[in-house]
Nucleic acid binder design. Structure first.
Lengths: 217, 217
DNA sequence: TTGACATTAAAACGTTCGTTTGATACAAAC
DNA sequence: GTTTGTATCAAACGAACGTTTTAATGTCAA
């Protein structure tokens, strides 16, 4: 796939290939040999440029993941400030779209969420970086922004859980993409992704949106 | 932790320890030596009883995961048929509780969802087993059952997405447990887990429960 | 031209991996 | 009492791992 005469310096190529492979297979399942072969450079280059494999992994997050996350945040921020004021629909739509259709390419988005999902499931050193610089500020900002449209009486924890849940929906349908495809029999085509965005927005706003007429309660 | 003089035959002990370790660290990150040491038996036992490591992994799903999933399904089924008829609250409550408080112990539930989440995110051979014997039948059954309480006009795909989303909420707060702890600063104490269960049920039913007065729509 | 530096190359290091081997223990079957 | 089959053991296998080492490059300032 990737040959020696690729664009960019070896260090950059290593970062790119490492990110792709870490996202696809996870840290332990990827070998330094695999990365350097994909980047078309020598085995020792990883240790020369990054010291060791773990540092390379951290550096992927520092130099690739975090800047990309900030791009997405900025996108969501602009979408929201463009609206005059907060309707719940607009808020969630801006959030969901920033994550699902935002400034990233499909490829970038796939990498991004796979790496994030792995850190969510099994946090490493990189998680503190991501949590400090991206997640906590963004979630706090969102919680504050959603405050006026959420039910009163919710404490800070309640708001945080709500926001985490919306984020969870987005993550889930990215994260479990393979499984959703196999279960539903659908491909993640543009049409199906649009369908998913609509669904996430609706579910985030109204849950099951169940018909309350028929029930006991 | 686990010594040689544990209950059960070595084959069973291997299955138990393998399940715990695979759930905790993932397939590649666990070595056969680690499993057999935890089970208090010889290294060669895995290959003797299961042929190889991969077969052991599959066998964990066949002999442990699937039966447990069927127990949970049966539990949910009975909860639902006990009620006279379908209220959305009752339906969702039965579903959420089957997954969150059902017949499984806390330990079993943790194992179960971690393994499931890994297969959802990065499906292996085991996924087909799980999808065929558990997921597809159960999701279809649930979608049918929820049909009367869901908004009309939803196609089969819409119903499936709704049910998948409830499942997703449960999975998310199990799978991202570590991250949720670090982000919220809370431990997964009994109290916080109760809080989470309430939240998941509420969110599944009403989403953000946003105040619709302030909005554009 | 020389020396210093950054980068790449090839080979080897010691360790851990999944798997296999051959011996041994202990039943039940004949 | 011998045979047979099952189960477990210590030991070793070759392969792959992350990392280190040493030599060979190319580049640019002095």
């Amino acid at each position: 796939m990737s040959l020696k005469d690729k664009e960019g310096f070896p260090k950059e190529r290593i970062l790119s290939e490492a990110e792709a492979l870490f996202a696809k297979k996870g840290y332990v399942a990827v070998s330094v040999r695999e990365i350097t072969k994909a980047a078309g450079c020598n085995l020792a280059a990883v240790n020369y440029h990054f010291g060791n494999k773990r540092n390379l992994y951290i550096e992927v997050f520092r130099s690739r993941w975090v800047p990309r996350a900030k791009r997405m945040q900025e996108h969501a921020r602009k979408s929201l400030s463009a609206k005059d004021s907060s309707s719940p629909t607009a808020e969630v739509q801006a959030l969901a779209r920033a994550f699902l259709e935002g400034p990233l390419s499909d490829r970038e988005r796939q990498l991004h969420f796979q790496l994030m999902a792995r850190e969510l499931a099994w946090p490493t050193e990189a998680f503190e970086l991501v949590a400090d610089q991206v997640m906590r500020p963004f979630l706090k900002e969102l919680a504050d922004r959603l405050r006026p449209v959420l039910p009163e009486g919710l404490g800070e924890e309640g708001r945080l859980l709500k926001v985490l849940s919306v984020l969870g929906m987005v993550l889930y349908f990215n994260f479990a993409r393979e499984a959703v495809m196999r279960i539903t029999g659908r491909e993640y085509s543009a049409a199906f992704k649009d369908r998913l965005v609509d669904h996430i927005i609706e579910f985030s706003l109204t849950g099951l949106g169940a018909n309350r007429n028929g029930g006991l309660r």
